[in-house]
Amino acid sequence: MKCPICGNENIEENDNFCKECGNKLKEECNCWLKKDSYNCKESSCPGYGFYRKMKEETIRKDLKTAKPTNH
């Protein structure tokens, strides 16, 4: 495989992004955060920002489904 942006040929079959320029090589990546195939629609890995977004969504969901407690 060859990166269409920088021409790097040092790309392995399992690589989601080019190691030289960071270009996204696949529409759906084997996402290291979700541990599954996922299309984040980003051109490069959003990394920690994506992790924070997922955590915020989980917290909002948990707050919506949480039952009120009497203290």
Rank of each mutant, 00 (worst) to 15 (best):
H71A: 12
T65R: 08
E9W: 11
G22N: 08
C18S: 13
N70W: 14
L25P: 07
Y51L: 02
D15T: 02
N10W: 06
C18H: 09
K64S: 05
P4K: 14
A66L: 11
R60W: 09
N39Y: 05
S37K: 15
P46V: 06
D15R: 00
D36G: 12
M1R: 12
N8I: 07
N39T: 01
G22V: 08
M54A: 02
E28L: 10
C45Q: 06
S37T: 15
P68T: 14
K34G: 02
M54F: 03
L25M: 00
K2E: 09
P46G: 09
L25I: 01
E27F: 00
M1V: 12
K26Y: 04
K53W: 00
F17N: 05
D36E: 07
T65A: 11
N16I: 02
K35E: 12
E28T: 08
C18W: 04
D15M: 03
P68S: 13
K55P: 11
L33A: 02
N23Y: 11
K2W: 00
K24N: 03
T69N: 11
K53L: 07
K67R: 10
T65Y: 08
K2R: 13
Y48C: 08
D62R: 15
K19M: 04
P46M: 08
F17Y: 13
N10Y: 06
K34A: 06
S37C: 07
W32M: 10
C21E: 07
E42S: 13
K55D: 14
N14V: 10
K55I: 14
E27K: 10
R60I: 03
K55V: 15
P46L: 09
C29L: 02
F50P: 00
E28Q: 05
G47H: 03
C45W: 07
K53V: 01
M54T: 08
E12V: 06
C6T: 04
N8E: 07
